Every structure is written in C-alpha cells, then in structure tokens.
Amino acid sequence: MRPVRTAGWTVVALLLMALAVPWFMWRDATVAFGLPVWLWWHIGWMVLASIVFAVFARTDWGLGVEEVH
C-alpha cells in the first residue's frame, strides 16, 4: 500500500507545481472584486496547497523517507 500512497502523493505534488503559475492568464487584465483574476488564482492555489500539505502532514508524514517496520 505504501508504494501506491507514495505515487498518489507524487501525482498530487506534480499537479500543484503545474498549477502554481497560471501561464494561461498572462496578459489577461480581467479584474474581479478589485483584484486581477491571476491574483485570485494565486490566492486560491495557496489555500489549496495549504490544505493538501496539512492532510499530508497528518496522514503520511515521512512517507518515502522512514523505513517500514
């Protein structure tokens, strides 16, 4: 089960990294609630990354680092 969990967390980490920079929003000047949409994207990404890290820290901290006994 550990290799499956490691692979799952790896996929989640890669997705978070891929979504960190909204390349598709470059040169878009759309504003929502007084801030550019790309900034809202970044705020949402930070919230999502924080939640994912909290779940990882509570459930699988040390996965891929600690030895299995």
Rank of each mutant, 00 (worst) to 15 (best):
M1A: 15
R5P: 00
T6H: 08
T6R: 14
A7N: 01
A7S: 09
A7P: 02
W9L: 03
T10C: 03
V11A: 07
V12H: 05
L14V: 08
L16M: 15
L16G: 13
A20D: 00
V21H: 11
V21P: 00
W23G: 13
W23R: 13
M25C: 06
M25A: 11
M25I: 02
W26A: 12
R27M: 06
D28H: 10
D28E: 11
A29Q: 12
A29R: 09
A29V: 06
A29I: 03
T30Y: 05
V31F: 07
A32I: 14
F33N: 15
L35Y: 15
P36M: 00
P36N: 06
P36Q: 06
V37R: 14
L39S: 10
L39D: 01
W40C: 10
W41Q: 00
I43A: 12
I43G: 09
G44K: 04
W45D: 03
V47E: 01
V47Y: 09
L48K: 04
L48T: 15
A49M: 07
S50T: 14
A54H: 06
F56T: 04
F56I: 03
A57L: 14
T59A: 14
T59G: 06
W61D: 08
G62T: 00
L63N: 02
G64P: 03
V65E: 09
E67L: 13
E67K: 11
V68R: 14
H69M: 14
